[in-house]
Amino acid sequence: MYRYILKRLLLMIPTLFGAAVLVFTLLRLIPGDTCELRLAGSGGYFDQSALDICRHEMGIDQPKLVQFWHFIWGIVRFDFGKSMWTGQPIVSEMAMRFQLSMEIAIVATIVAIVVAVPLGTISAVKQNTWIDYMVRAISIAGIAMPSFWLGILIILGLLIGTQYFLGTPWMPPITYTPIWVDPMKNLALIVWPAIATGYRYSAVATRMTRSAMLEVLREDYVRTARAKGLFEKLIIRRHALKNAMLPVITVIGIEFAFLIGGLVVTEQVFNLNGLGKLFVESVTNNDYSMTQALVMLVVMIFLFVNLLVDILYAWLDPRIRYR
């Protein structure tokens, strides 16, 4: 097992290198650069020499290979440098945002698991009953409904509802407060986007749980367990659910990694200062150093989550123990 983990960790290196080549090349295909945007972006006057100096300071006038080498050398030393747009260290720019994105991802995942696993299981056990139809309708609605749209509805609903019932419109806070500073304020902000994203997330996981459970419930070992006279609850919990969890964990893992950097529109709807928003801004501002750092961070998260999922596989199913 340890050898397997080590092998997987080593395999991350070429994957990260490939991602680095890709992001470096793609970014430079976007017309314009951050200097031009800063100087011309508001229509103000500037001369060519100012542009040249800015490019020199940013290092974007150097040959592409030299720029790439600096980028790779930075990754090796875990030094992502400074944002080309704000001039601030990238690590400090990302720190609070990472914390927020991670918190949303965790809460949304909890919402998804708490909703999806019981609903998917009930839906499978009560197949083709009104309960199953209802769960399926709810989960299909969740898949069909974009999270950001649900987010807009939630905010409008809160504003209109509170104005109607309390006389004063209320909406979630629009600035982030860490949970250890003010837990209530933190939750008042986090819970709504977590519901908006968690609903879609749970819908996918519910569908997956249901189909996996249906498959497992038809397995011979479940029939054998029933023939032995085991309680139905025990059969479902110990024999069926554990085995049905494999594909569900894969979905949960992928969705979790996606939530860290992919909540671009939902973050804007709730004014969450997360990594998704930063991603869009850095691409829009041609901030190469920040975009590169973000891509590498997200790639690393995906790789680690995948590794974790594989380890969980082995824990859940002894047949998949790797040597």
């Binding site: 905010i155 419109p169 209320w170 909406m171 629009i174 004014n271 928003k277």
Partner: peptide, 21 residues
Amino acid sequence: FQAIFAKKESLRVQAIRGDRA
């Protein structure tokens, strides 16, 4: 004062409506 960055116009309008700004 606190100057809060909010890119989305609808959010800025709602922030005034909900008295967050």
